[in-house]
């Protein structure tokens, strides 16, 4: 099966290793992975800020790039949710596009969701000798139902133990531009998340979205926590993280 990997703008810019980790997992699952070279952004910043026309332009570009693939896989619940849950709304009232959008939406998956439900990957190369806690990012959880999938995949990682924090499903306070517009409110929200992480004394918090990752890591470090690792689930599964010890 031909799988198009949409690495997302934040992985591209901030954490390329997560993109390569996703790529290696998909290849391990036997997928023929294509990475369209012109990919950029799914349009979510514009969509959530009221710039519908700007969002639509980027959505059209992404659709054209990924249409030929059998599946589209995204190492982010937020960007996958944008395509799956919000593109159809963005193109509602435009039947020719809507048909294309719905086809694409139906074959778009968040990475762990794809590995569990479609690729049925049964072993992973990653090793992590320590305890991790999983943060459920909002869009993945509430738009795509990604909850059991990352935990099922992490359970296959040699040496890794999962411990659940309270309110794993609560928002970390990132919210895209919210974190900059209302920086102090956002900081209070992420503090609650950091308290939850600190309380379980895990070696790492693992998650599936770059926005939450930058937010939680940035706040943990500012609070003086130099110990707790913040890792994307792809890097833990692929064994590409700093954390494999």
């Amino acid at each position: 099966m031909r799988v198009g990997l949409f690495v997302t703008c934040l992985v591209d810019l901030m954490r390329p290793r997560i993109g390569f980790a996703a790529l290696s997992l998909l290849e391990r699952a036997g997928c023929e992975v294509q990475v369209p070279g012109t990919q950029t952004c799914c349009g979510q910043p514009g969509y959530n800020s009221g710039d519908r026309a700007g969002a639509r332009k980027l959505a059209e570009k992404l659709i054209a790039e990924f249409e030929p693939c059998d599946y589209v896989v995204v190492p982010s619940g937020s960007c996958a949710g944008m395509i799956r849950a919000h593109y159809p709304e963005l193109f509602s009232g435009d039947p020719p596009w809507l048909a294309r959008v719905e086809r694409l939406a139906a074959k778009t998956y968040e990475l762990t969701d794809f590995l569990v439900r479609i690729a049925k990957l049964d072993s992973v190369p990653g090793e992590y000798h320590g305890t991790v806690t999983y943060h459920d990012a909002c869009s993945g959880l509430r738009e795509l139902g990604v909850k059991a999938q990352p935990r099922a995949m992490l359970a296959k990682v040699k040496g890794l133990r999962i411990t659940e924090m309270t309110e794993a499903q609560a928002c970390c306070g990132f919210g895209g531009t919210f974190a900059v517009k209302f920086g102090d409110v956002s900081t209070r929200i992420v503090d609650v998340k950091c308290d939850g992480i600190a309380a379980v004394k895990a070696d790492a918090v693992v998650l599936g979205d770059l926005g939450c990752m930058l937010n939680i890591e940035g706040r943990l470090r500012r609070r003086g926590d130099e110990r707790t690792q913040v890792l994307h689930v792809a890097e833990v599964l692929a064994g590409a993280g700093r954390g494999s010890s």
Binding site: D12, P16, G37, G218, R219
Partner: peptide, 24 residues
């Protein structure tokens, strides 16, 4: 240009090269 962010948090720095460049 991102004081809303950095007043309460650090910004973890990027790795240095983009995925696109490395992949190409």
């Amino acid at each position: 240009f991102g004081r809303g962010w950095t007043e309460g948090r650090d910004l973890p720095a990027p790795e240095g090269e983009t995925f696109r460049a490395l992949y190409a």
